[in-house]
Design a binder for these strands. Sequence first.
DNA 1: GACAACCTGACC
DNA 2: GGTCAGGTTGTC
Length: 270
Amino acid sequence: MPELPEVETIRYQLALRLEGTKIEDIVIWKTGRETPVGREFVQSLIGRKIQTIERRAKLLIWRLDDDRALTAHLKMTGRFVFVNTDYQPAKHDRMLFQLSGGTRLVWADMRQFGFLRLVDQETLDCILDMYGPEPLEVEPAVLAERLVKPGTRKVKVALLNQEVIAGVGNIYADEACFRAGIHPTRNLGSLKQDDRLRLAQAIQEVLRESLARKGTSARQYVDTMGSRGAFKDFLRVYARAKQPCLICQTPIEKILVGQRGTHFCPVCQR
DNA sequence: GACAACCTGACC
DNA sequence: GGTCAGGTTGTC
């Protein structure tokens, strides 16, 4: 589900309530394909103190006091939601974390693509090294430079590649292309320096605006309070196929690019 | 670069 | 019944 603004919203909310707490117990409700929930996994986590909650690209990282980290990828439908003590597990709930101080957190994942993985420092460093720059932590020029030779042809495909720029997904790739007036299938080699910079600025702009509204709930996404992101009402092309372009009234088109649904204005984007 | 795979549910 | 869904990975 979530892209950078959604994962960052969850990171912030988790950090407020989890940092400094101790994992007192873990209840496994359902074993998942991608989620190791053996006795070893549980035993390794119980008693650990959570030092910090960080995010890199779309990956959440719980740094623990034993030099290891619990990484979580939400993929399409993963969720962390805080619950009360009388909470009864719902259909797709997978496990419950009980933290010191009485905090209870549920990990749920309808489609089971997401994963929790316990990794040591060295493994984590390898994982994090794969990602491109964090788009909100570098200058636009740095992002623009990443688009010079990304090893792929189409603009949108490059934006979705986490090794090129970290954290951009299907919604914000489309939104950034629209804001920059660049066609999503445009050949990267045809972009001029000015185009790349405009696209880089558009990426930052849309991510910042979405983050300020706690992300986009196109379908399932909710934050740790079960609340939806408000940026859905501000999308300009995503999920607006056949609706008039907000600039020129031409119907927004939807095509497939790199196997992903892609929305754009055929007039405003070239 | 295309395509299938992982899985469940919503919608036409 | 078929198609599609905020992601990623592996195989031609």
